[in-house]
Amino acid sequence: MKLLIVIPAYNEQENIERVVDGLRSGYPQYDYIVVNDGSSDDTAAICRRRGYRLIDLPVNLGLTGAFQTGLIYAARHDYDCAMQFDADGQHLPQYIEPMLAKLEQGNDIVIGSRFLTKKKPKSLRMAGSYLISWTITLMTGRKICDPTSGMRLFNRPMVEEFAQNLNYAPEPDTISYLIKNGAKVAEVQVEMAERIAGKSYLNLVRSISYMLKMMISILFVQWFRKRERPRNNAVRQDQGEREEKAC
């Protein structure tokens, strides 16, 4: 399977070298592409100086637009699957292989999950994650232990669907919508590192408005969406094997 790792980067000058060098030296078998999302810092300059594969967006599109750019590239260059990979060093490349293996078992999306076999901590920070998990279960009957994980692997039909359509943000509401429409979504237990440098985008206000948006989107909006390109094998009896889940 030909994999493209899509690394959207917005103002990640402190992290991008470490992340991409880690991939290039340890995992040369995978292709990657950095999508610089109109950063105002030196992210693009560093990528050029180090000779990284780079798509340099002239304006800031946000995560959805930047990630979609990577997927359009993947679709145009005939990749079999594409992975969403953070530029802040949170995601660890040693988990790419087990995720690929899971995808090859016939899944459409594989999520790198922090809480598949490990218990999700009952902290305020995780309250949002619990709420989204619970909402997805309510709407789809499926349990997604780590819906907000940004480490996701998509197969070819998903890459095309994400590349072509509006309202395919790499977010939990899209996952919920796709499960409801017959996509096979699986999780693989991964570890994640703490962000080493730079600031996280999330603060309290942003977190709350993100949650509100997700809840409304999953609970109300997804009912009214129509999937434009239904797959031939869209009707599936059971949603994959049942696994032991700790969450």
Binding site: N167, S217, V221, F224, R225, K226
Partner: peptide
């Protein structure tokens, strides 16, 4: 909801009107 169904509006922008 009709706009969303036809993929003519981003969910983000419809949220205000739904609330």
């Amino acid at each position: 909801f009709r706009k969303i169904r036809r993929a003519k509006i981003q969910i983000e922008y419809s949220v205000f009107w739904i609330i």
